[in-house]
Simulated assay, not measured.
Amino acid sequence: MPVAVRQRARLPAWLLALVFTTFTFATDDYVIAGVLPAVSADLGVSEAAGGQLVTAFSLAFALAAPVASVVTATWPRRRLLTGALAVFVVANWAAAFTTSYALLMGLRVLAAVAAAAVVPAAYAIATTLAPDGRQGRYLALVMGGLTGSLALGVPIGTWVGGAFGWQATFGVGGALGLVALAALLATLPETPPVAAMPVRDRLAPLARAEVLLGLLGIVAIVLGSMMVLTYLAPFLHDLAGAGPVELGWVFVLAGVAGFAGGQLGGRAADRWGPDRALIAGIVGFAAVMAVFSACLLLRPVPLPALLPLLAVWAGVSWWIPPPAQTRLLALAGPAGPQALALNSSAVYAGVSGGGAVGGLVLAGHGSGWLPAVAAAVELIALALFWLAGRRFRAR
């Protein structure tokens, strides 16, 4: 291969640092699902209450992201990212030493606010510094840190928590943040701040009913999926007697299958159209949830027998977002960029809702009801997108 070709193919170090940064934040958000029983038992709260640590993180992110993007719009990007990562590291290491549920909740909120300041800026930097014709590829790589966390970060955090206690999991989260901070300091060039967009302009798409319905559909899609993911530990314990070690391998499987599902969902949206791809994904999700519910009648079910079903669950869960976001873009029309900005908040609102609603189901009816309620929420999402399409065609 000629030297010039090799140089063009080599990814810049700053891009890899941004990928690792989003990987770190996503790991920190999702890893609670892997150590939930241990955290709840040690702090003397129910697993439903422990799951609200995911709710707190995600809700804080959803609320802080649009505010942070406005407040920090004129700040130097390099200083913003490294400063927020420093706060993130402190919040995680402090969490490793706390014995108070309330204090841990506050530290999760602090870590989420730091993440909310970094993640949107990381996406913007990736597209700003990308060579012509590679903006989409660079952005996809940075966003790939999210699915990569399920395949690698969450299993590692789960295994560490099983071997050394859940406090060590937060210690690992802080260490990952420190590595990301050092990598950005060493590789990220200073980029000019972006012009601030007034909050009124950012929220303008909400005035259109079809866009609002589409965003609510995104919330419902993520909420249904996260109900199962957040409480996967108690669900698989009740269904198959799975412990932390087994759960770590399940997260590896879910990450790999989720990555494949996301790629297939994006291709299906291009080839079939977003509506047909969205219907296929949600119907597939509901079918998997129905099989999970049937398996509860046969428990305990050997975990190896559940692995193919878990892989399909992860695949269809990540299949759904690409056609849903493509449909949202079509509904927004010229307001697509603003709608995508609101989409980030909708995603994290769904994550927080998954923790909250799933916690209510778990506390009130047990883990066996999680699949049925999750399927119902996904079907509601499909209805919301159908209503959005009707409003769009009627304009």
Rank of each mutant, 00 (worst) to 15 (best):
L236N: 10
V142R: 04
L213S: 05
P323D: 11
G157E: 09
D28Y: 04
V222E: 06
G51K: 05
A363E: 14
P131N: 11
A84R: 04
L232E: 04
V245Q: 14
V194H: 15
A383F: 04
L278W: 03
L298A: 15
H365G: 12
R108M: 02
I218F: 03
V90W: 02
V252K: 03
A180S: 14
T128V: 04
V347E: 00
L306Y: 07
Q325T: 13
P323G: 06
A60Q: 07
S100I: 08
A209E: 06
T158W: 09
L331Q: 10
G224C: 06
R299I: 00
A372L: 14
A346T: 07
F20V: 11
A111M: 02
A64R: 01
A277R: 03
A376Y: 04
A233E: 08
L253D: 00
R395C: 05
A324Y: 01
V252Y: 04
P321Q: 11
M226W: 10
W14H: 15
F61D: 03
P120T: 13
A126S: 15
P308L: 07
V291W: 00
F164C: 06
A84P: 01
A381W: 03
G350N: 02
R8W: 06
A277N: 07
T230R: 07
A372Y: 03
A112R: 08
T230P: 01
L15H: 08
D270W: 05
A269E: 08
G261R: 00
G333C: 06
I156C: 03
L382I: 10
G174A: 11
P304S: 12
T24W: 00
L342S: 09
L59N: 02
G368E: 14
A383Y: 05
V361H: 01
A38S: 15
I279N: 00
T127R: 14
I218R: 05
A175L: 11
V70I: 13
T22C: 07
A168Y: 05
G153Y: 06
A335F: 04
V154S: 06
V89T: 10
F164H: 14
A62K: 00
A186H: 09
L110I: 10
W159F: 15
T158P: 11
S149F: 08
G366R: 00
W93Q: 09
D238G: 15
A242I: 07
V3A: 14
D201L: 12
H365M: 14
L296R: 13
L139E: 12
V245F: 12
L309V: 14
A175H: 00
V291K: 01
G217T: 12
